[in-house]
């Protein structure tokens, strides 16, 4: 949690999502480190799930490859542990769907996440009113919970976020830029950023924009209003297209540098400690 707070204290934040296990768990850790080197403040370690209904084709394909390669909650926790050992300051968010956490047992999953150096959980199919048990388990282990808001969310949803923040640590809110699945190209990043600014004022928490952030321009547009931008599908695609580990790492670093530049154009951050 402290690491996430520190990231937002430094300035506008770049969040990078990876599907852990695609192409292998070890390489995912290396790719996460590439992201950090290129300027990502927070890594979302994606737990691949068999039925990713909030994801578009690119992340759905990556999830299938990752599961075939032995990916899942246990492997993602191992990756978190390795990343934490190598990168003591980066923010780590465990990102995924509810069933793997539920089947593992919420208390056990929260404890293991904490032990693996995870700062917060983000569960795309677990709305706030269904999340009480997991949030409390996470909070008991010092792990935060990241709620989502969407373009369709009305006032009562914002109220629900406030309730969650009163009950346990909420490091930031994830604003979904468009109605849709990941990998959309329809994102109006500037508009989403502006909405994020309104939401920040309403909930009193940092708000990042994700879904469809795939270029320097969109990262800048989102970060103009928001406290940060999240890139996922663009990175997953770069990994999918890379032929060998070195090529994949290079493509990921190049893309993250671009996105970092976009976020910094919106507002330069204070130099990292």
């Amino acid at each position: 949690m402290k690491r996430l707070e520190a990231a937002f204290d430094r300035g506008k934040v770049l969040v990078a999502y990876l599907c852990v296990g695609d192409p292998s768990v070890d390489e995912s850790v290396e790719l996460a480190r590439s992201c950090v080197r290129a300027g990502a403040d927070v890594i979302e370690l994606g737990v691949p799930f068999s039925d990713p209904t909030a994801d578009g084709p690119a992340i759905a394909r990556a999830s299938q490859r990752a599961i075939a390669a032995g990916g899942g909650l246990a492997a993602t926790l191992r990756a978190a542990r390795a990343l934490r050992a190598a990168e003591p300051h980066v923010g780590i968010v465990l990102f995924g769907y509810y069933n793997p956490l539920f089947v593992r047992g919420e208390e056990r999953a929260a404890k293991e996440a904490a032990e693996s150096g995870v700062d917060a959980l983000l569960v795309v199919d677990l709305p706030i009113e269904e999340s009480s048990a997991l949030r409390h388990a996470a909070a008991a282990h010092g792990v935060g919970f990241v709620p989502l808001l969407a373009p369709t969310s009305r006032g009562d949803r914002i109220g629900a976020v406030r309730v969650a923040a009163a009950e346990g640590p909420v490091p930031f809110v994830y604003y979904v830029s468009v109605t849709g699945v990941t990998g959309t190209t329809a994102t109006d990043a500037g508009k989403a950023g502006a909405r994020a600014a309104e939401l920040r004022a309403a909930v009193g928490l940092p708000v990042v924009v994700g879904f469809g952030i795939d270029s320097r321009e969109k990262a800048r547009g989102a970060a103009l209003g928001a406290d940060g931008a999240v890139a996922g599908t663009a990175l997953v695609r770069a990994i999918e297209e890379g032929r060998a580990p070195a090529a994949r790492a290079e493509a990921v670093e190049k893309l993250v540098r671009e996105l970092r530049a976009g976020v910094d154009e919106a507002r330069p951050r204070a130099s990292a400690s």
Binding site: T53, A54, Y98, V124, D125, L126, P127, E129, E130, P147, L148, L149, A150, P151, T152, S153, R154, R157, V176, T179, G180
Partner: peptide, 13 residues
């Protein structure tokens, strides 16, 4: 039971 879906769908539900 319950509603385990993406936030975007909650208002529609």
């Amino acid at each position: 039971g319950g509603r385990f879906v993406a936030e975007t769908l909650i208002p529609a539900l």
